[in-house]
Write a protein that binds this DNA or RNA. Sequence first.
DNA 1: GCGACAG
DNA 2: ATCTTGTCGC
Length: 232
Amino acid sequence: MNFPDLHSWNLDYAAAVALQRRLARQVELTNRLPERVRRVAGVDVSYRKRGDIFYAAVVVLDFPELRPVEVASWQARVDFPYIPGLLSFRELPVLLNAFRRLRHRPDLVLVDGQGIAHPRRCGLACHLGLWLDLPTVGCAKSRLTGEGPEPGFAKGDRSPLRQGGEEIGAIVRSRDGVRPLYVSPGHRIDIPTAVDWTLACCGRYRMPEPTRLAHLETNRLRREDEARRSGS
DNA sequence: GCGACAG
DNA sequence: ATCTTGTCGC
């Protein structure tokens, strides 16, 4: 897998928005998953509120066992600020570098953030899917845009997430009674299938196993690095 | 101008 | 995302 150098986007707000509009046209919303999905990956990024060092991790699990089979990570300084709608410009570079260290190519990637449930239909999951040329799903813990009714109480209950006339994702109950997830396609997958895979990857926790484990790994890395720094 | 706003 | 203590519920 080869990746261009992304250390500096060198983009202002208008240019980033323009780029997203172009990228959104390349997003595919039809299923292009292999007949048999054997490996599902989850990605996440962690950092301090007041700190520019980002820790990214990608965890690959086998399916349907959902056992971790490989972990890759990367850390780097990030200067791009958090701007609602431009999250991918902040987290994508360090994430791609973590992916670059991966030996096994996953069949599907679950992302902590939105897919097409984004003002310009180009959330982090879409941007990552396009870069990696892989099917991706956005599994966000909260809403960025769109509206929809509260889904039922039971695990698996869902309701459509819409913006204007279009359906951009689903509000999904991943466990009984928990706050729902905002699921939307990232790339090469449709909405119902994105929901199916999200639920298929959920164990006894609110977050799907791939992103949940990536989150744990990312926090472990940060604690480790911070301890290493204060001790030297 | 005002409110909303993934992580 | 992170900060941060105790507290409510299974």
